[in-house]
Simulated assay, not measured.
Amino acid sequence: MEFSPFNHVVKLCIQGMNMEEEKKPEEAYKLFLQGWEEAANAHEKFLAAYYVSRHQKTVADKLRWLETTLEYALKVNDDTVKSAFPAIYLNIAKCHEDFGDREKSKHFSELAISLKHNPSDKGPFYHGTKADLQVGDVLTAGSHSNYKAELKMNHIYFTALLNGAGLAAALAKGDGRERVYIVEPTGIYENDPNLTDKKFPGNPTRSYRSEAPLKIIGEVTEWSRPGPDELQKFREKLKDNTGKIIN
């Protein structure tokens, strides 16, 4: 499953997170549980279980839901969920610590540490923009943010999700047409910390960044474009966002 903010279960989880921010945990829990009950595949089950787990009132119930989260994450086991494993294992370790089981707590803590490495995602990777570029050109860090014009970016950002790059192109500043380029990192890259383990566990949007240039190796012309109403909601959300960009 390619992560999409328009997915039904993802929407329920977003609504639940909004209820959490409004200090309405009971309403949030109902939405997360609805997401779990209506989830139709392993990825949706993984997401919903993750949020249900953090609303449990006992350590035993929390552990049970965390183990369910892990079960479905392992079934998916792709680059949308792999970066979530360290946090899941650490939470499971904390539950065993609360139970007084030091051996199991140590085991899951060590698993979490062992999985903290560079992203395993091999692409293909995409970059969405309104700039007219050619194969062989390079994209470099140092441009101003599309979302905070006063901020000069220290990294160049890209994603392994074609539709995600298409959304970025639609939201990019400029009057040119939306372009999605196939790009190749020329140096090391990392999970985008602005998205990884933030609202959603792991890196579901498969978003990355690098200080090294990205080389353009091709262009894609077809992807699923959001409708005008959906795009306007994104623009409004970005405009109202007061969060700090990790640069």
Score class of each variant (00 low, 15 high):
S4A: 07
A28S: 11
L12S: 01
Y126S: 05
P228D: 02
K239N: 09
K82I: 09
I188Q: 13
K152N: 03
K244V: 15
A42N: 13
M17S: 07
Y157C: 03
Y89G: 00
A212N: 10
A170G: 05
T69S: 04
H55E: 07
A170Y: 06
K30I: 06
N118P: 00
K130N: 06
E44Q: 12
D132K: 03
E44H: 04
Y147M: 10
D240V: 03
N194H: 05
Y29K: 13
N247Y: 08
E97R: 13
Y51H: 14
Y147E: 11
E178R: 12
V138W: 03
P204K: 01
A149D: 11
N7S: 15
W36G: 00
L133K: 14
I88D: 00
E2H: 11
D240C: 09
D192W: 02
E38Q: 13
P86R: 06
D240F: 06
Q15T: 14
C95I: 02
I182V: 15
I182N: 02
P86S: 06
D137K: 09
N146S: 09
F32Q: 01
T140H: 12
L31A: 00
E110F: 03
K94V: 07
K45G: 02
D132E: 15
H55K: 11
G142D: 05
W65F: 13
I246T: 13
Y126C: 10
N203Q: 06
V76Q: 00
K198T: 12
F99S: 08
L31G: 01
E37A: 06
K237S: 14
D79R: 05
L115K: 12
Q134V: 14
K173S: 12
H8K: 15
W65V: 04
H43M: 14
L90A: 11
V10G: 00
W65S: 01
L115Y: 06
A42I: 05
E38P: 08
T69I: 05
K116C: 13
G136R: 10
Q134H: 12
A73E: 06
N163V: 01
K239H: 13
T186M: 15
L70A: 05
F99W: 06
G142Y: 09
Y189H: 09
S145L: 02
F46T: 01
Q34K: 14
T221K: 11
D132M: 04
K30D: 11
K11T: 14
S109G: 12
K24I: 07
W223G: 00
A172M: 10
S109E: 12
S210N: 08
L162M: 07
F46M: 05
Q134S: 15
K24V: 07
L70C: 02
E71N: 11
G202F: 01
F234Q: 09
A169L: 02
M19Q: 15
G128F: 01
T68H: 04
G128I: 05
A48M: 02
G202S: 08
Q134P: 05
H55C: 13
R179K: 13
Y189T: 08
A28I: 07
L139F: 06
